[in-house]
């Protein structure tokens, strides 16, 4: 009688319990920081002591959110971040996908291997802050949103991932499309991309999250504070550098923003990008399943 493989046996109850316990601990460890941040954001700043760990708000109030949302800074910064993330991700995907496709056509595109080497070189060495700044300035992008998008238009890592995925698409499929009279852009749009939804979704998410979380470029290239994205504003609220000893400033700068307001800004800066994940979930699942079937 053929025995079933070990992993198909019904697990022992103790092993099952251990797994559940382990997963439960993992869930708590992952979720608790979110719960704490949300609880603090809804707490009364006069009752909450920084350093306390909360499960529920202390003195429930929405004052922190009212303060943040009634001001002009955070709502505007959220809009800036959404705009930069959407436009930036689109630009990233257009250029990365087209370049990745071009680099798969090693027989048709002369010098594509050399170009790929140059791309890989950029993964090992970066120019540094000052040369990048001089380049952006030379291109006339200081104080424009393009300075947050163009310098990172193509990520070498993402390009290589997409290219490798494209390389696994059978060449015969592309040849068949060519015989049917399709041009290269038609092949990319009608054959390659529909077969690559999983990798496109993952890379778009990588780009999107990177744009959403970016603050350093904005700090360097944007002199107009009205153009600051939410992460730079959030950084100001949460890290809030201490005015150094003895720097007697105006009263508004001496006051430390309450933790509750800091956490409210943190929640507002986190929610939009979290909302994207469920929409991309099915592509992740599909990608995993496709890989499994292909073995």
């Amino acid at each position: 009688m053929a025995t079933r493989p070990l992993w198909m046996e019904k697990p022992h109850p103790i092993a099952q319990a251990l797994k559940v316990a382990l997963l439960a601990v993992t869930v708590v460890v992952m979720l608790y920081p979110f719960i704490h941040v949300i609880a603090v954001s809804f707490s009364d700043s006069t009752k909450y002591t920084p350093g306390d760990l909360l499960l529920l708000p202390k003195g429930f109030t929405t004052e922190a959110y009212k303060l943040v949302l009634n001001g002009a800074v955070v709502p505007r910064a959220l809009l800036v971040s959404i705009g930069v993330t959407v436009v930036g991700t689109l630009v990233n995907m257009v250029f990365t996908v087209t370049m990745a496709y071009g680099l798969t056509q090693t027989k048709r595109v002369p010098g594509s291997r050399f170009v790929l080497l140059i791309v890989l070189f950029s993964m090992l060495f970066s120019a540094g802050i000052i040369p990048n700044y001089l380049l952006v300035k030379g291109l006339g992008m200081i104080d424009t949103y393009w300075s947050l998008i163009i310098p990172g238009t193509i990520s070498a890592f993402n390009l290589v991932v997409i290219r490798n995925f494209f390389m696994n698409i059978p060449e015969e499929l592309l040849d068949a499309a060519r015989i049917d009279g399709a041009g290269e852009l038609q092949i990319l749009g009608r054959v390659v991309l529909p077969l690559s939804k999983a990798v496109i979704a993952v890379i778009a998410l990588f780009y999107g999250v990177a744009h959403w979380n970016a603050f350093f470029g904005a700090m360097l290239y944007l002199n107009d504070t009205k153009m600051w994205p939410v992460q730079l504003v959030l950084r100001q609220y949460v890290l809030q550098a201490e005015p150094l000893p003895g720097a007697q400033l105006e009263p508004s700068q001496v006051a430390i923003t309450p933790h509750t307001v800091q956490m409210a800004v943190l929640v507002l800066a986190t929610v939009p990008i979290l909302v994207v994940y469920p929409f991309l979930q099915r592509y992740f699942t599909k990608g995993v399943l496709t890989g499994a079937i292909k073995g």
Binding site: T225, S252, T257
Partner: peptide, 8 residues
């Protein structure tokens, strides 16, 4: 600036 950006 140490806090939120001021308006001008």
């Amino acid at each position: 600036t140490w806090g939120a950006p001021p308006k001008l």
